[in-house]
């Protein structure tokens, strides 16, 4: 029983739930702001995502007459809940070690596609032809970007496992612990291809240009999101904010957890700063500079570049380098 309350606290307040939500929304605001600056615009205020959420909460929810009601309404909550749990699994070096026995790379690998799955469920339940189109595109993208993600996770696990002598180390807390003791994986040339693959994976999983094929508003009218309105749409946005936090946090934890000397607060701030830096590098710059791939181009891109890079690291780690 005594383990339940800290676990609940970690899931609902810090670093999952509330903390990740607020941080994720601010990161989204920062993303929009910086993107605007890169295009020489002023851009919306930093708290714009909060205003959007408040607005959506006050709007009417329209449910299409032909939609599968239950699935249609459950999908956004599913994506949101999956990501809220995920956020609690990410260790913040120097402040939070992760949930004991739960912070597992494989669990993350299974939970990470949840928002995408929620999108697909929602899109197909909405009974809109554009939703179905968005569904097939999302599916295609998922197949493409999950390959490098799996290879990257395996490479990290293999590398840490080989170094600590347990074979394959899937516990994220152990991965962070190893890096705290032996230096960050980002500084190890063997892991550089995996790092590059992870950086390329980020824009794909977050659905930003040029990989925003499933939600392309000019082609498939926002695809699966087409029929959503009001609070249900708000949940998708919240899930997306949480996912931003999770994938960025995972990247930081896997490759560069190095904490600063100082208290937990300093390290939380340092963690957020690293996340923001990672986001500006991989999401904002890419978004501001590119157009949109066609779906087969995006698919082939992931199989051509990030997947071999991640596999290269995996091979090197397997050989025990």
């Amino acid at each position: 029983m005594n383990d339940i309350f800290p676990a609940l606290f970690h899931m609902l307040v810090f670093p999952g739930g509330l903390f990740a939500l607020v941080a994720g929304l601010f990161l989204k605001g920062l993303d929009r702001r910086v993107e605007a600056r890169m295009q020489r615009r002023v851009g919306p205020p930093l708290w714009q995502p909060f205003l959007d959420i408040v607005k959506l909460a006050l709007k009417q929810t329209v449910i299409p007459a032909t939609a599968q009601r239950t699935a249609f309404l459950a999908a956004p909550v599913l994506g949101f809940a999956g990501m809220a749990v995920c956020a609690a699994l990410i260790p913040v070096a120097g402040a939070y070690a992760g949930l004991p026995g739960l912070g597992d790379l494989l669990v993350l690998f299974y939970l990470l596609p949840l928002p995408a799955v929620a999108l697909m469920v929602g899109g197909s339940a909405s009974s809109s032809p554009f939703g179905a189109l968005g569904f097939s595109r999302e599916m295609c993208m998922m197949l493409a970007y999950e390959v490098p993600l799996l290879a990257v996770l395996l490479a990290v696990a293999m590398k840490v496992g080989a170094a600590t002598g347990v074979g394959v180390e899937f516990s994220l807390s152990a991965v962070v612990g190893y890096q705290l003791a032996h230096g960050s994986l980002a500084l190890d040339p063997v892991m550089w291809p995996a790092l590059a693959a992870y950086l390329l994976f980020l824009p794909g999983t977050m659905g930003v240009p040029p990989f925003d094929v499933p939600e392309a508003e000019t082609e498939v009218l926002e695809g699966p999101l087409l029929e959503y309105s009001g609070p249900a749409l708000g949940f998708f946005h919240l899930a997306s904010a949480l996912k931003t936090m999770v994938v960025l946090g995972l990247g930081v934890a896997m490759f560069f957890p190095a904490p600063l000397p100082g208290g937990a607060l300093v390290n939380v701030a340092w963690f957020l700063a690293k996340c923001a830096g990672l986001m500006l590098l991989t999401l904002t710059v890419v978004k501001a500079a590119t157009g949109r791939f066609r779906v087969e181009q995006a698919f082939l891109f992931y199989l051509k570049y990030p997947a071999p890079l991640a596999l290269l690291s995996l091979g090197l780690a397997w050989r025990g380098l």
């Binding site: 929009r32 605007a36 295009q39 020489r40 615009r41 002023v42 851009g43 919306p44 205020p45 714009q48 205003l51 959007d52 607005k55 709007k59 329209v62 508003e217 000019t218 009218l221 926002e222 999101l225 087409l226 029929e227 959503y228 309105s229 749409l233």
Partner: peptide, 21 residues
Amino acid sequence: IPRYDVERLGCRYCGSPRHAD
């Protein structure tokens, strides 16, 4: 066009009528 930038008022052009205000 950066000169007019309606986004600073919080506006966004959305692709779906369901998202519109």
